[in-house]
Design a protein around this nucleic acid. Structure first.
Length: 642
RNA sequence: GCCACCGUAGCUCAGUGGUAGAGCACUCGAUUCGUAAUCGAGCGGUCGUCGGUUCAAGUCCGACCGGUGGCUCCA
């Protein structure tokens, strides 16, 4: 007999080799029907896996965390089953569950066609209908070698397994895979899924190895979830910053001018200007100094910094001038170091915080360029803080205050990650760990929920990474706080301490918004193009109903401008409906309609973006005052934003 | 850079070997209108580029250029 402890704290005595399914059946028929897998001492296993010692057991159902991963991993096997039946020669690679779905990699003579994808999906339906059980079997390495004799990719993986590892294979109907599991009980459990796309993917993610053909799919427990996910994909497409960027006249990219180089149009420029102006004022109010440094630098600078040779593959090529070689700057830190080093520094001067909206250029391979998100020229919201070791904590704390302000202003939720010392770290491990501990204590003191990426820090220092969560629930790389013990060393930075001796400062690289290109690109998608009033390039469109009130409307536009608001007059000879439609399409926050009644009374009929026919008639001054208050408060009046 | 798909007017797209099309946008004219498309006319394309097959190529084939989705890499 063994003891099984359940999540509610109860303990059951059952015979050795009882399976989780049997226990679920004992608890209730409903639970047995809902059971997909089990969590035994924290590890997810199959329902039919016999228990041979005392355990803590949790039955996994659709609602359990991790349940979708099990389903999706099984979906990947079902996909491979279907592919094998259509293309028997396909060699199988890996097929894991991923965020929102699953994939499977195949080595095939010719890539899959879109039509084939449909056929594969249909064949998957047949596999599901068979409802074959997923059967786990423990095998020896020798047996496994025989079973996968025709699957070189599996053999390669097999040989990496240690001799003491338990090797398992899973069979469902005709398909056998080397796999750790677990799986849902049978193929019939997969009901709501869809294949999405094919893509090339290097075997083991190594571009020196052969390219496999990957098939992506998604799977859910209910048709509703599947449809919601597909709808989310549609919504993401609708909000694509490249599409909205063109439609709203924000930016463009030109072959003639160079790929991956953003041309900010007047509307996009106004958005960027407004953000930059707000950012600079915030930084000045928070103890930062603004600096400006050149776009090119003598290559020597990057030899000292070490970017040559480590970063040279990401840099634009050399520029020869007289006898010297210059480079477009890939980052701002060496320049800021020059400013720090330009005079002797005292411990009393520290911390020094140099901020720059610094434009950098990096060579990115053509295949990775993507709208404003991945470009070759970008302007970083960059800053470097030079401080004493004992100032790391307070500086990190102040930075997290700024992060809070910025994220709240733009309406982002966020998640925090702390990355600790990797194996290959430089310098004294004690210094690295002490600094990491300072960061950790700051996070703890602030009551921040954070995840630790053990060994995920850079070799030159630990860091705090912040991931933005946008309106669609997607995560983006956000602010980072990166400690650096290396550059002060390489540039021999010093300050004079209270002991009148030279000391080495610590550098903190930090960004709040990342690059203006990426940040604004992200904002376009976050807001779906409907920028809050304070950021909207055009805040009010004034619409006179007839030519008779044109002058009155023009006067109102002048009043808006005088109040520092961005209003424009649309007095074209088009119907009111037409002009309203266009203002809605351009996602302008407010329309101010002026007809004979309003002109007479000194009022405007205000129509808010996205609010339909609802109108609010108010005195002109009141509307101006309301708008000014809204701009000042940076109100997030974005439809659909929580 | 690699794999797949795509490339027709400023935009969205139709056109399966036989004389390049539509809607929107733009220009002109008419219309003066009460909350998401007023009517008419006009302008606009060497069908991504180069080569090949064919009596004939937007259409079939090849190469190249560019875009998209991935891979790899990153602000």
């Amino acid at each position: 007999m063994i003891e099984v402890r359940l999540p509610d704290g109860s303990v059951r005595q059952v015979p050795t080799h009882t399976t989780p399914r049997e226990i679920a059946e004992q608890i209730g028929a409903g639970l047995a029907r809902a059971a997909l897998a089990a969590r035994v001492n924290g590890q997810v296993v199959d329902l039919n896996r016999p228990l041979d010692h005392d355990v803590e057991l949790e039955i996994i159902t659709e609602r359990s965390p991790g349940a979708l991963d099990v389903l999706r991993h099984s979906a990947a096997h079902i996909l491979a089953t279907a592919v094998r039946s259509i293309r028997p020669e396909a060699k199988i690679g890996f097929g894991p569950a991923i965020q929102d779905g699953f994939y499977y990699d195949f080595e095939v003579d010719r890539p899959f066609t879109p039509e084939e994808l449909e056929a594969i999906e249909q064949r998957m339906q047949e596999v599901v209908k068979c409802n074959d059980p997923f059967e786990r079997q423990v095998v020896t390495k020798e047996e496994a070698r025989r079973l996968f004799a025709d699957d070189p990719l599996k053999l390669e993986r097999l040989e990496e397994l240690g001799d003491d590892e338990v090797i398992t294979v899973y069979r469902n109907g005709p398909f056998l895979d080397l796999c750790r599991g677990p799986h849902v009980p049978a193929t019939g459990y997969l009901k709501h899924f869809k294949l999405l796309s094919t893509a090339g993917a290097y075997w083991r993610g190594d571009e020196k190895r052969q390219m496999l053909q990957r098939i992506y799919g998604t799977a859910w427990f209910s048709q509703k979830d599947l449809e919601e996910y597909l709808h989310r994909l549609e919504e993401a497409k609708r909000r694509d910053h490249r599409k909205l960027g063109r439609e709203l006249g924000l930016y463009s990219v030109h072959d003639e001018a160079g790929r991956g180089l953003i041309h900010w149009h007047p509307r996009g420029g106004l958005i960027r200007y407004t953000i930059e102006e707000y950012l600079r004022r915030t930084l000045l109010a928070n103890g930062y100094d603004l600096v400006f440094t050149p776009h090119v630098a003598n290559e020597e600078l990057y030899r000292i910094s070490g970017h040559i040779p480590t970063f040279v593959d990401n840099m634009f090529g050399p520029i020869e001038v007289e006898d010297e070689t210059y480079r477009l700057k890939p980052m701002n830190c060496p320049n800021h170091i020059m400013i720090f080093r330009s005079e002797p520094r005292s411990y009393r001067d520290l911390p020094l915080r140099y901020a720059e909206l610094g434009t950098c250029y990096r060579y990115e391979r053509s295949g990775v360029l993507h709208g404003m998100m991945r470009v070759r020229g970008f302007t970083q919201d960059d800053a470097h803080i030079f401080c004493r070791q004992d100032q790391i904590g307070p500086e990190a704390n102040a930075l997290l205050d700024l992060v809070d302000i910025m994220m709240a202003t733009f309406g982002y939720a966020y998640r925090v990650f702390l990355s600790t010392r990797p194996e290959k770290a430089i310098g004294d491990p004690a210094v690295y760990d002490a600094a990491t501990e300072q960061l950790r204590q700051v996070l703890v003191a602030r009551g921040v929920d954070y995840n630790v990426d053990e060994g995920g820090g850079a070799f030159y220092g630990p860091k705090i990474d912040i991931a933005l969560v946008d309106a669609l629930g997607r995560e983006w790389q956000g602010p980072t706080i990166q400690l650096d013990f290396m550059l002060p060393e390489r540039f021999q930075l010093e300050y004079t301490g209270a002991d009148n001796k030279p000391h080495r400062p610590v550098m903190i690289h930090r960004t709040l918004l990342g690059s203006m290109e990426r940040f604004v690109g992200g904002l376009i998608e976050h807001y779906g193009g409907a920028f809050p009033t304070w950021l909207a390039p055009e805040q009010v469109r004034v619409l006179p109903i007839t030519d008779d009130v044109r002058d009155s409307a023009a006067a109102f536009v002048a009043e808006l401008k005088a109040a520092g608001l961005r209003g424009t007059l649309d007095d074209r000879s088009e119907t009111l409906g037409y002009r309203i439609r266009e203002a809605e399409t351009m996602k302008i926050p407010y329309m101010a309609v002026i007809g004979a009644r309003e002109a007479e009374a000194g009022t405007v009929a205000v129509r808010e973006r996205g609010a339909g026919r609802k109108q609010d008639i108010m005195p002109r001054e009141e509307f101006v005052a309301r708008l000014r208050a809204e701009v000042e408060a940076r109100t997030l009046n974005v439809p659909g934003l929580a």
